[in-house]
Design a protein around this nucleic acid. Structure first.
Length: 471
RNA sequence: GGUGGAGUGGCCGAGUGGCUAGGCAGCGGCCUGCAAAGCCGUCUACACGGGUUCGAAUCCCGUCUCCACCUCCA
């Protein structure tokens, strides 16, 4: 079975065939760095990180480009409100996004182009559109002529006459109210440093042109997959496609959109006052659990975030990572190379190939964990080792191998050794009390450790202890 | 008004015509001095009304409810 993906443009699932066998270019719309990232931003990033990992697992070479939009009205407005230059505000948030992406275990993209670094590429593209009769200049601004491009609206299946006017520019200046700005003439109230020269006079780029220009630069005139959040389909992606194709580029062959994080059924957004910032969530929960929560719902389904979401994810992570740790202690951890090349269970492969059906894939992982735990309990080392390898290999595809770099215990070394010595002394004292059937003393020791966040587990091979939030 | 999506057990969440999704929570059992972890078993479903079919959560018709996009959005 080959990988099948849902194409937003055709609204159907089909076999995925790269333009060049073995190589895939992905352009992912990243953040408009106007504010700190929330978990909805992370969800989109994680969804496409899983796509990338799955492609790479199949031997495909992936070039992942994730842009940063670092210029625009919302950035100007928020920077002014914060009393800092817009470029400082943008970079400050870009750093927060990068920290968030890293925290939840995303592989870094091949490149992260910034809009402000690609004005020349945009000007070339705009000039092409003007020359080709798809764009026109008015008062120092340049607009895309939607009526010049019959396929306009095809990505989102909308008829031109049903669309509302584009409000990113004055209606009176345009041939059609739905024409949108490629280049915005400088205005008196534009912030300092937000103006660039152009053949049409000083100004700054419109919102959509950057992605067309940067995708072309890094992935070529035609590339495999364009991704982003569902809310970018219109107008952003519709306009990107119109610009690029009107300029002669093949542009994206497949469009993928990830769905929201919702609360009470409604899209998470600032206007509703229910934004969940990444920092706030990570202050109370582990990053691995957050990734698990984000990845555990199919990427095209709404992810309902409630009170129990993170608690469930923590419990699930404890089950998965706990098995990996205990199995490793019992039969030894396989090497990373073995994990990367392990044969994956057929049902897991089928689920992932079916438009990245991660929830089904997770069910397969849970079944393997159950088998592995049973093998550990019965002392079947061979079966336990096989389950351990399979579980780690499957989790690795989701970016959740507990032994992989992002999730390995941050604590270690001397402090952990010192703590271990102290805890071992308590464990020994408890063992002595238990030997004397002094249950009150034994339980008091266990309770004292529990109060300090240390859990004891009496196993066949001795007493294990774990720190809260660790394994 | 246009376009698109959704309604599954206490909760989250898979599933496109017959075969146990899975997890969390609950209940019973095994293990344990008691726990914890783990294992085994088990309860609670397909928004509503019709229809097609031997058989429908799944297909068709209708109804209700909810959500998103329609130029800030992931």
């Amino acid at each position: 079975m080959t990988l099948r993906l849902f194409d937003s443009a055709t609204r159907s699932v089909g076999d995925f065939a790269p333009r060049v066998p073995g190589k895939v270019g992905i352009y992912l719309c990243g953040a408009t760095v106007q504010s700190a990232p929330h978990i909805g931003h992370m969800r989109a990033a994680v969804a496409f990180d899983v796509l990338r990992r799955w492609l790479q697992r199949g031997g495909t070479e992936v070039t992942m480009i994730r842009n940063v939009t670092d210029v625009g009205d919302t950035i100007f407005a928020k920077a002014e409100a914060a009393g800092v230059p817009w470029w400082e505000w943008a970079l400050r948030n870009e750093r927060l996004f990068t920290a968030g992406y890293d925290a939840v275990g995303n592989l870094p993209p091949a490149y992260e182009p910034r809009a402000t670094g690609h004005i020349p590429e945009m000007l070339v593209l705009i000039a092409q559109l003007v020359e080709g009769g798809h764009a026109y200049e008015r008062d120092g601004s340049v607009y895309f002529d939607v009526r010049s491009f019959p396929a306009y609206g095809s990505l989102t299946n909308q008829a031109l006459e049903d669309l509302a006017p584009a409000e990113d520019s004055p209606e009176a200046a345009k041939r059609d109210a739905r024409d949108f700005a490629l280049w915005k003439a400088a205005k008196a109230d534009d912030p300092a440093g937000a103006t660039w020269g152009s053949p049409w006079g000083p100004g700054r780029p419109g919102w959509h042109i950057e992605c067309s220009a940067m995708a072309r630069r890094y992935l070529g005139e035609s590339f495999d997959i364009h991704g982003g959040g569902l809310d970018l389909r219109f107008p952003h992606h519709e306009n990107e496609q119109a610009q690029s194709r009107a300029a002669g580029d093949g542009f994206a062959r497949l469009w993928m959109h990830s769905a929201w994080v919702t609360q009470g059924g409604a899209k998470m957004s600032k206007s509703l006052g229910n934004t969940l910032l990444v920092d706030a969530v990570l202050a109370e929960h582990s990053a691995a659990a957050l990734r698990l929560a984000l990845v555990g719902v199919h990427y095209r389904s709404m992810l309902e975030y409630g009170d129990a979401t993170m608690d469930d994810a923590e419990a699930t992570w404890a089950r998965l990572s706990g098995f990996v740790t205990r199995a490793g202690e019992s039969v030894g951890q396989p090497e990373a190379r073995a994990v990367a090349s392990a044969t994956l269970p057929e049902a897991f492969v089928e689920a992932m190939d079916d438009d990245l059906a991660v929830p089904r894939a997770l069910a397969i992982i849970h079944e393997a964990v159950t088998e592995g735990n049973a093998a550990l309990a019965s002392g079947d080392a061979e079966a336990a080792a096989a389950a351990l390898l399979a579980v780690r290999a499957m989790l690795d595809v989701l970016g959740l191998d507990p032994e992989a770099e992002p999730w390995r215990s941050a604590t270690g070394g001397a402090p952990l050794d010192a703590l271990d010595a102290l805890v071992r002394a308590e464990i020994d004292a408890r063992a002595a009390a238990r030997a004397a059937k002094d249950w009150a003393t034994a339980d008091a020791i266990r309770d004292r450790l529990a109060a300090a966040g240390i859990t004891l587990e009496d196993g066949q091979e001795g007493v294990r202890w774990t720190l809260a939030g660790e394994r």
